[in-house]
Computed example of a mutant assay.
Amino acid sequence: MLVSEGRQPCESVKHWVHRTLRHALMTGRFQPGEPVTINGLAEMLAVSAMPVREALQYLVADGALELLDNRRVRVPEMVPEKFDEILAARIALETVAAERALPQMDFLRLARLQHLDSLVDAAYDAGDIERGIVANFDFHRCIYEVHSSGVLLPMIESLWLRLGPFMRHAAENHWQSYKVDRHAEALDAIRDRNAEALKTAITADIQDGIGHLGRAQFLDTAARTF
């Protein structure tokens, strides 16, 4: 079920609808392959069709949704080749963003990161996958926004947007098999001002986090076809 994000003071309906749908996709409130309709979303959000139509156009352009031949819109399915490409792009962009941010990281930012990491752990310990996904994205964003908010961060968030539905599905099925906390290694690297260690930790977090969960999901799907 789509739960709307609170509309901010002075925020236009158009911007609010787009932000709400982006957040819903990023946190996996839509499933891979799920169709979406303008009228259905407009009814759920209690708005007219126009801002929904415009938001869907932006999300199709971002690759978060796909337009089918019959002009219907759906959440794209994830396939291994696309998954590997997105992960490679995440690693390339996020390690650069982390390295750029490191010289400007202060003790307040480090404390914020420690808090966000504790929220990730608490969410998954409670079985709240969506809250864990949100806190994980917030952890990474808290690093990258220090020195890469203008170009790199929007590019990174577009990759998170494409992964969101599949990530949620994979995490719900396989989270218990993933126990490695790479955030702790990233925090240690930030304390030590060690750029190479931070890049290694970010790479491992992506590969051993969503990479592990995604591969497990693909193996499950393949096993059902054998």
Rank of each mutant, 00 (worst) to 15 (best):
R112F: 02
I86R: 04
V75N: 00
R72Q: 15
I91P: 08
I86S: 02
L110K: 03
R72S: 15
R72L: 13
L93S: 11
R71A: 14
L113A: 02
F83G: 05
L119P: 02
P80T: 04
V120K: 07
E81W: 10
L68H: 13
A89S: 14
L65E: 01
A97N: 09
R109F: 00
Q114T: 06
L116I: 07
A111L: 06
E85R: 15
I86E: 04
L65A: 05
Y124W: 14
D121T: 14
D84F: 11
R109P: 00
R90K: 15
D84L: 12
L102E: 05
G63K: 01
A92Q: 07
V75K: 00
D106C: 00
R90H: 11
D106H: 00
R90W: 02
P80G: 07
L68W: 05
V120H: 01
E81Q: 12
Q114I: 02
I91N: 06
R100P: 01
L102W: 04
V73R: 04
P76H: 03
P103C: 09
P76R: 03
D106I: 00
F107R: 15
L93N: 13
V96Q: 12
D117I: 00
M78N: 06
Q104M: 08
L113Q: 01
L93D: 09
L93G: 10
L87S: 04
R109D: 02
L119Q: 15
S118K: 09
R74N: 05
E77G: 09
V79Q: 13
L102C: 07
A111N: 09
V79S: 08
V75R: 01
V79Y: 11
A122G: 06
L87H: 07
L113G: 05
A92R: 14
L87N: 05
L65C: 02
A89R: 10
S118L: 06
Q104K: 09
L119H: 07
T95R: 10
L116K: 05
P76M: 04
M105I: 12
F83N: 04
A111Y: 03
D106K: 01
R74H: 09
L68G: 06
E85M: 14
R74V: 05
L93Y: 13
R112H: 10
D106G: 01
V96G: 05
R100M: 14
L119K: 11
E99M: 09
L87M: 15
L108N: 14
D121K: 12
R74Y: 11
A88Y: 11
M78F: 05
Y124E: 15
L65R: 02
D69L: 10
R109A: 13
L119V: 07
A123C: 08
L119R: 14
D84N: 12
R71M: 12
Q114A: 09
A122M: 06
E94H: 06
E85W: 12
P76Q: 03
V120L: 04
L65P: 02
P80C: 06
R90L: 10
L108Y: 11
G63F: 01
V73W: 08
L67N: 11
D106R: 00
A92F: 11
I91S: 06
A98Y: 02
L119D: 09
P76E: 03
D69K: 14
Q104E: 12
N70S: 13
A64C: 10
E99F: 02
